[in-house]
């Protein structure tokens, strides 16, 4: 039991990653508000980012600048996540543009109301 505690307490950031991804999924599935689903998508994605940045960290490391002292953390995941963040904001922007159109057509961003409008 205490082993398990040790295992997880030495990996708190990974636990947080799992939680954030879960929260993101929850919002995506649960929310009736389409806008909020996009927020959920962002939570989901940033949770994954946390995984990458955590994996790059080393305890005695400094930022990956060669002018700095000592060993540095792993720069590669940072690069990947920089890319992913930009991808993320791009996706969000397109999602929002789509929602603007959905609203123009249905005058609501509530999923159940949209469904009703679609059926009628």
């Amino acid at each position: 039991m205490s082993d398990l505690v040790m295992v997880f307490s030495s990996r708190v950031a990974y636990v947080a990653f799992a939680l954030l991804v879960g929260i993101g999924v929850f919002v995506l599935v649960d929310s009736d508000n389409l806008l909020k689903k996009v927020v959920g998508l962002n939570l989901f994605q940033t949770g994954v980012f946390l995984f990458f940045i955590t994996s790059a960290f080393r305890r005695d490391g400094s930022a990956p600048l060669l002018s700095g002292p000592g060993p540095v953390v792993n720069p590669l995941p940072h690069v990947l996540i920089l890319t992913a963040i930009v991808v993320g904001v791009s996706v969000t922007a397109v999602a929002l543009a789509l929602l603007v159109r959905v609203y123009d057509e249905y005058e609501t961003l509530d999923e159940s109301e949209v469904k009703e409008a679609q059926q009628s």
């Binding site: 904001v89 791009s90 922007a93 929002l96 543009a97 603007v100």
Partner: peptide, 9 residues
């Protein structure tokens, strides 16, 4: 791009 998106949205 970001400015364009902001303006358009």
């Amino acid at each position: 791009v970001v400015v364009s998106l902001f303006v358009r949205l």
